[in-house]
Design a protein around this nucleic acid. Sequence first.
DNA 1: GTTTTTGCACTGACCAGTCAGTTCAAGTAA
DNA 2: TTACTTGAACTGACTGGTCAGTGCAAAAAC
Lengths: 208, 208
Amino acid sequence: MESSTTPGGRTRREATRQKLYEAAVTLIAEQGFSATTVDEIAERAGVAKGTVYYNFASKSVLFEELLRHGVGLLTASLREAAERTAREGGSKVDALDAMVRAGLVFIDRYPSFTQLYVAELWRTNRAWQSTLMVVRQEAVAVVEGVLREGVENGEFSDEIDVPLTAAALVGMVLVAALDWQAFQPERSLDDVHAALSRLLQGRVSGHR
Amino acid sequence: MESSTTPGGRTRREATRQKLYEAAVTLIAEQGFSATTVDEIAERAGVAKGTVYYNFASKSVLFEELLRHGVGLLTASLREAAERTAREGGSKVDALDAMVRAGLVFIDRYPSFTQLYVAELWRTNRAWQSTLMVVRQEAVAVVEGVLREGVENGEFSDEIDVPLTAAALVGMVLVAALDWQAFQPERSLDDVHAALSRLLQGRVSGHR
DNA sequence: GTTTTTGCACTGACCAGTCAGTTCAAGTAA
DNA sequence: TTACTTGAACTGACTGGTCAGTGCAAAAAC
């Protein structure tokens, strides 16, 4: 039989899975994967434990699909920012700047996911290691693409190290944003964006 | 009775604790705190489980002391770099650059500790939350200090946001270095340092 | 009438922490 | 020198509890 759909157009299963993602992401961000129990996730999602296993083969599978889901949202948002800038005739620096902002918006909207992503990204010897590699490369590749185009059209020095610079930029935004969330949450996104723009464009050691 | 000393001058207990730190740091970096068992730590350290509890009140306490120990090494190294630059009459940009290098050297020598530090730093709701805050601030404060001095003597724009910029710089180095270790370990430290220097000094959008 | 969810009891593996007992180097005594 | 004592350091089997995952009958949703 065809899967039935709710008024919103999503299947019932999808709605349940969404609730489980949301419950799992905050719990795992706070406590880590191993310290989070399936019972907790089910309870927070307002669902029976059996439902978790009806929808996901195991706890790890739930987590892996959660990762893929979240990174999909992030890369889509980064790509959109880069393309919009290009469409509007902006330079590559403008594109990077727009991506920094898109990153901040994403982190602002999904702080737990970001936390969890950073915490698991450099782990080795874990079941979902391969998923993580794929998922990392997906996000960094978008930044690398813009850098590479900038080198080709002469806007960036051809001496820059594209993969390393991309990683450094991602790290800059990630860590600055997590610090913002954790230690000075009252500041506005524009404020944080301005500070990072300044750093990005080398206007730190400029003068007053 | 006086505690006996080995030929190296350290007490036997200290030597055991050191072995436990070393075993714990790699295991926790790979698997995370909760997924690492005390039995594993004891086995890797070549010691009985009881010895762990003879030396540390609990698994969490072992971890907290490990954190403090490692961050102590890092901040000492950062401070030393800043002071050496000052002594040699370097500018504040030189000091930042020296600190970037010191950070890279540290991460190169203690990659597991760095991994673990990043993974646990933004967790909330954990027993050692307060330890983490202290330990984070300790490291970031060194960078903030140099930035603040630079603003005071006019070398940096007084529009920069000191805490946020410090966090962003730390993040840049941390993430770039972890990526270096994980994905392109064949590259030399000088290479990585050069790429980050370029970014730090805004020589990215300069021309060929 | 089919799919999805519920509720709940159950199992087996795993694991933090405990504790009674062992080891051994340094100290004391004769 | 030799015999005995002391106490810090260490050992590893054991316990009590936790948790991922199962099984299933009945209910609800569609």
